[in-house]
Design a binder for these strands. Structure first.
Lengths: 199, 199
DNA sequence: CGTATTCTTCCTACTAGTTGGTAGTTTCCA
DNA sequence: TGGAAACTACCAACTAGTAGGAAGAATACG
């Protein structure tokens, strides 16, 4: 047996390279051969870790959501005010897009392909969006009660609007090939929620 | 020769079915065999109309943009005020998504796959977004000067923000499988731009 | 301790089906 | 009679996935 919970086991490397490939071309935009090239093992060996492509991507999205849940929990602990949380979240994506490390959300790409995705993968993708949505709703709600956020609508609606802005901005940045577009769009979205003297 | 500018020539049917297929699964989500089944001709016959897949999709996106330009021109003639234009635009998408006739923008899907797209297609997709963006900027600018729109930021920024909201809302509607989400998100985005007594 | 045995991981070699694309032919209509 | 549009019949490359074996490490057992 390898060292327990080895930080870069082969199966982790497979998932990581699959994530990068999906991030640029979606579910049908990569093959086991592509992964094989990146990781440096044979196609058949990938099937040992993930019997089918559906297994691979289902697990990938599941972990993506779980990682998100962990990160969100940490964020909630370290940043008290709601506005701070939203801006850390936005800045996280801004940085990922600008340094090209993770220039697009895997689930955003998979969600746009949703109707043609295997059902098991689609379920997992939908679960990711429900998670982010309910988290943002709770942040909006709390901020509104704290007085650190000014909401023009119900928390659920503000959460959906903010989420749409983030993912729309991500798409625009990619469409124009200009990473800075993301921050340009997010800045007014955040300041609209900010309590200020001019209101 | 067939009737001149026949409204449903074979090549139009090919483009239409390709559009529907891309709309649900993207560039790598359909094949000539899929189109062949829908249109009712053999694979090889498609190659007669569009020698390569790149030719087909390039032409498809080119026409998609040209149709957009025509529709926008008509809209500008029929609806005078800027706010009306934005709401007609938003309602157009809301209707398309809810009656499932065109539940997603072809260029949104292609834009998310942009890094893995053939260069010739990518160029055309980028051009579509530049077109929509500059059109929305002109609408924002005009509305601001007319006083029919209230802008919190420069017209370019408001245009990008609005575009991001529309495309983000489109994604959310698809991700949740709830068409009505689109309208829920767009409504506050529009009312924020609306001059009203409470301001 | 040594040594069998099992388990994991990777390998080579293969399959059936699909992909985009080509060659050459027929059909049909202006 | 000539061109457009369809066809049959291919092809090489690629797809996800399988079968079966080799190497090595962990474990069980005497």
């Amino acid at each position: 047996m390898r060292f327990m919970s080895n930080l870069s086991s082969t199966s982790d490397e497979i998932l990581a390279s699959a994530r990068n490939l999906i991030m640029s071309g979606g579910y049908n935009g990569f093959s086991y051969a592509d992964i094989s090239e990146v990781v440096g093992i044979r196609k058949a060996s990938i099937h040992h870790h993930f019997p089918s492509k559906v297994d691979l991507v289902r697990e990938l999205v599941k972990r993506y959501r779980e990682d998100g849940e962990t990160n969100v929990a940490t964020l909630e602990q370290n940043v008290p005010d709601a506005l701070g949380i939203l801006s850390v979240y936005a800045n996280h994506w801004a940085k990922c897009i600008e340094d090209a490390s993770r220039p697009y959300c895997v689930c955003a790409l998979l969600a746009s392909e949703l109707p043609s995705l295997p059902a098991e993968v689609a379920t997992e993708v939908t679960a990711f969006f429900r998670f982010i949505s309910s988290w943002l709703t709770s942040v909006m709600d709390r901020g509104s009660q704290q007085g650190t956020l000014i909401l023009a609508n119900a928390p659920e609606i503000e959460a959906e609007a903010f989420l749409a802005t983030v993912y729309g901005a991500m798409l625009s940045a990619r469409a124009y090939g200009k990473p800075e577009v993301f921050a340009v769009i997010l800045q007014p979205a955040l300041s609209r929620l900010t309590p200020s003297i001019s209101h």
